Amino acid sequence: MHPSHPPSGRLTALGTQLIEIHHWLREELAQLRASLDSPGGGATLTRELRAHCVGFCAALDQHHTGEDGGVFHLLAEQAPELRPVLAELSADHLVVADLLRRVDALLAEAADGRSVRAELDGLAALLESHFTYEERKLVAALNRLTGDPVELLGVTPPPDGDPLERTETA
């Protein structure tokens, strides 16, 4: 069982889950970038590598869409002082979405791994700054909230051993 789902069935605080999601996304991106560094990875993209990339991009997009449509609205209502922070984070989400579209376009045109790696490097730098800022500014406020983590955060971290498995809303 994943650490955010203890035997009692009570969910870990949303702020803690946000950190877990970010940790998982960081790991997935690092694995994806490392795969592009492997022998042959820089020149061609295998079907598995493309699938991993598409899955990662979809999970990240789902997370940001969930935040914008879920938890950010709730936080804006319950902690109005966070509205400027939420606006900055939502603006970051638009930049990330643009980068994800560029990665998707590279995959669709069968670009080489080096081109994809360059976009992922930029994405990794942006995400590290974004995740760190978001965690620093929102975790305490999130830990005071209750609600469905999938609805509010877009995704939950997958159970160990199931990379890129996402929990979908019903």
Rank of each mutant, 00 (worst) to 15 (best):
A170Q: 09
G70D: 01
T169W: 13
G40D: 03
D160C: 09
R144Q: 11
I21M: 07
T169G: 14
F56M: 14
A91Y: 03
I19F: 03
P3F: 02
D104E: 11
A140D: 15
A170F: 10
E77I: 10
R117H: 10
D104S: 10
T167F: 07
A125S: 13
D68R: 04
L99C: 01
L106T: 05
E77L: 14
R117I: 01
R101I: 04
L107C: 07
L86C: 12
T156S: 12
A118K: 07
L120F: 00
D162Y: 13
T46F: 08
E81W: 06
G147W: 06
V116T: 04
A111H: 04
L100N: 09
A111W: 06
A34K: 13
R102I: 04
G55P: 09
A59G: 11
E48Y: 06
D160P: 15
P3V: 00
A170H: 12
E20G: 11
A111I: 02
G9E: 10
P84M: 01
Q62Y: 01
H22R: 09
R144I: 01
A118Y: 02
T156W: 07
R166A: 04
P157L: 07
D162M: 13
L82S: 03
S38R: 13
G15C: 05
V54D: 06
A97S: 11
A76R: 05
E151K: 12
H22L: 08
L106E: 08
L106D: 06
E28V: 08
E28S: 15
D148L: 02
E128K: 09
P3W: 09
S115Q: 15
T46R: 08
P157K: 05
S8I: 07
D92A: 08
E168R: 15
L89H: 00
R33W: 04
Q78L: 14
E165C: 12
G15A: 09
G41C: 09
D98N: 07
D68A: 08
A140R: 15
L25S: 11
L99H: 11
L138W: 11
A58H: 09
T132D: 05
L11T: 13
Y133E: 15
A91S: 03
H93D: 08
H130S: 06
H93S: 04
S4P: 00
L152M: 02
H52Q: 14
E168Q: 10
Q17L: 03
H5G: 01
D68H: 13
R114F: 07
A110D: 12
G66F: 03
L127Q: 12
L153P: 02
H2E: 10
V95C: 00
E134N: 01
T12M: 11
F72L: 06
A34Y: 01
E119R: 03
D37Q: 15
P39A: 07
L60G: 05
N143G: 01
A79V: 12
T65N: 06
R33C: 13
F131V: 12
V85N: 03
I19G: 08
A124G: 08
L25P: 05
H52G: 13
A34H: 13
L145A: 08
L153F: 00
T156A: 05
E81K: 06
V155W: 03
P39V: 06
A34F: 02
K137G: 03
R166Q: 09
L94P: 01
V116M: 10
G122D: 13
R50C: 14
